[in-house]
C-alpha cells in the first residue's frame, strides 16, 4: 500500500498515513465501480439523445411530432430495407370501436393470433402475439379448465375456443395504474402506449385483468424482409427494448377505415368489428340482437370486446 501514500483528498485536510490509505482505497473503489457499470455505458452510447429528452406524445407540437416521425421512418427504412413509413393516426371524431366474437363458430385455428404476430411486428423468437386462444371445456366459461397451449387438430370434441386480447376497457385499470400517463385511452376507445415515454415498471401489466399487455423483455428481433412497412407511432412500429405494448385494434388500419388484421385472417367469420355509433353497422346489429357477454363483468372494467353464442 506504499504508493497510496501519494493520494490525498483536499477535503480531508489532515493527511496522515491513514487518510492517504483511505484516499487510495477510495480511488481504487471508484475505478472498480466504473468497471462494474461499463455495460450501462455501452447501452447509453446507442441511445439517441433527442429521444432521451423527448416529451410526452400528447405534449408534442405537430412540428415536433413530424420531426420524430421522420426520424422513425428513416430508422424503419434502414431496418427493413423497404420504403417503410411511420405515420401518426389520430382517432376519428364520432367513432367508437367495439369488437364481438362468435364463440359458436370459432374453431380455435389461431389464424388471428398468427396474423397479429405478422401485422404488428412482433418479436419472432418468442412467437409473441396480442391474442391468446384458449381451448375451453363445453358446459361453462371456466378458465381454470382452459388451456392456451393445446397442440392437436381443432376443433376437438367437447371443446370450444375463446380468443382473448385487449378488451379496450371503457374503465381501464391499466391506465389508472400507470404512474406517468404513458398509457391512456383515446376518444375512439382504444388504449394506447407511448413507447417513447413508458419507463417499463410493469404496474399496468399487474393491473390488467385480461393478460392483455406485453413487455419487451429484450429488443424485438424480426428479419428485415418480414417487417411490416405500414407503421404507426402508437401501434405497430418496431418497439424499443424495455417498454410495454398491447393490442391497439390495429389502429393503423382501423383509423384508415380498414378492418383489424385478426378479423381479416379469421376463416370462419367469427369476428365482427366496427363503429358502435353507426346505427347501420354490423357490430351494432350484433350488440342489439345477440345475447352478448363480457369477461369478468364483476370487475366493472366495461370491456368493448363482446362474446356471444349463436344458439
Amino acid at each position: 500500500m506504499s504508493e497510496s501514500r501519494k493520494f490525498s483528498l483536499p477535503i480531508l485536510g489532515e493527511v496522515d498515513r491513514r487518510t492517504a490509505v483511505k484516499a487510495g482505497a477510495a480511488t481504487l473503489g471508484l475505478a472498480a465501480w466504473a468497471a462494474a457499470i461499463r455495460p450501462w455505458f455501452e447501452w447509453t452510447a446507442e441511445l439517441n439523445p433527442d429521444e432521451v429528452l423527448q416529451k410526452h406524445y400528447r405534449e408534442l407540437t405537430p412540428e415536433q411530432l413530424q420531426v420524430i416521425l421522420n426520424k422513425l421512418t428513416d430508422e424503419a427504412r434502414k431496418q427493413s430495407g423497404k420504403p417503410a413509413v411511420v405515420k401518426d393516426h389520430k382517432p376519428i371524431p364520432g367513432v367508437s370501436f367495439a369488437y364481438a366474437l362468435n364463440l359458436s363458430i370459432c374453431i380455435g385455428c389461431r389464424k388471428c393470433a398468427e396474423a397479429c404476430h405478422v401485422e404488428n411486428n412482433h418479436d419472432r423468437p418468442s412467437h409473441q402475439s396480442y391474442i391468446r386462444v384458449f381451448e375451453m371445456q363445453k358446459g361453462g366459461i371456466d378458465f381454470e379448465k382452459g388451456n392456451a397451449n393445446y397442440d392437436h387438430p381443432v376443433p376437438a370434441k367437447d371443446k370450444y375456443y375463446m380468443p382473448v386480447q385487449c378488451q379496450q376497457c371503457e374503465n381501464p385499470p391499466c391506465v389508472k395504474a400507470c404512474p406517468i400517463e404513458a398509457t391512456w385511452q383515446e376518444s375512439d376507445g382504444i388504449v394506447v402506449v407511448d413507447y417513447n415515454w413508458c419507463i417499463g415498471c410493469r404496474y399496468c401489466e399487474a393491473a390488467c385483468p385480461y393478460h392483455a399487455r406485453r413487455f419487451n423483455w429484450e429488443k424485438p428481433q424480426i428479419p428485415a424482409n418480414e417487417i411490416n412497412p405500414n407503421q404507426s407511432y402508437l401501434s405497430n412500429r418496431v418497439r424499443p427494448q424495455g417498454v410495454m405494448e398491447k393490442c391497439t385494434f390495429c389502429l393503423h388500419r382501423t383509423r384508415e377505415g380498414k378492418l383489424p388484421a385478426c378479423l381479416e385472417a379469421c376463416p370462419t367469420g367469427a369476428r365482427v368489428f366496427g363503429n358502435v355509433l353507426d346505427p347501420d353497422s354490423e357490430i351494432r346489429w350484433v350488440l342489439e340482437n345477440k345475447r352478448v357477454f363480457v369477461l369478468k363483468e364483476e370487475l366493472g372494467t366495461k370491456p368493448r370486446f363482446y362474446y356471444f353464442f349463436d344458439k
Binding site: H56, P179, I180
Partner: peptide, 24 residues
C-alpha cells in the same frame, strides 16, 4: 424498471406524474 434512463418522467413538474390516480 425496463427503462431507467427515463427515470425523470417520474419527477413531478418535468415528468408527467399521474397523481392522484396511480397508487404508485
Amino acid at each position: 424498471l425496463g427503462r431507467p434512463d427515463r427515470f425523470w418522467h417520474l419527477i413531478p413538474g418535468i415528468g408527467k406524474f399521474n397523481w392522484p390516480m396511480s397508487m404508485l
